[in-house]
């Protein structure tokens, strides 16, 4: 694959997907770096043919199961111990604008 061009708009889109507020004046900086890095690694698509299977797991293990037996849970106090905001034993989060799931 030819080395792709990365624009500041691309970075803005990716940053939104990744939920990182990159300031507008830094988008071009990241775009430049991303382009350089991608330029050096784009060659991966030229190496392996269709006959080469992809490896997702370094060891060829299968069927690692746990029995359906209760394990140790945390107490609500432990679960909430690191939370930035708590209300009635629940994690309090800012308002959700988007409706999903």
């Amino acid at each position: 694959m030819a080395s792709p061009e990365i624009t500041p708009d691309d970075v803005a889109h990716l940053a939104r997907l990744a939920r990182i507020d990159i300031p507008a004046d830094r988008l071009a900086y990241y775009a430049g770096q991303l382009e350089v890095i991608l330029g050096s690694i784009a060659k991966v698509s030229e190496v392996a043919g269709d006959d080469v299977p992809a490896t997702s797991h370094p060891q060829p293990l299968t069927n690692a199961f746990r029995e359906d037996e209760p394990g140790q849970s945390l107490t609500a106090e432990q679960a909430l111990s690191g939370a930035p905001s708590v209300e009635d034993s629940r994690f309090r989060v800012p308002r959700i604008l988007d409706e999903e799931a």
Partner: peptide
């Protein structure tokens, strides 16, 4: 592609 290189 990267996962295929892993195989290689």
């Amino acid at each position: 592609s990267a996962q295929k290189i892993r195989t290689l």
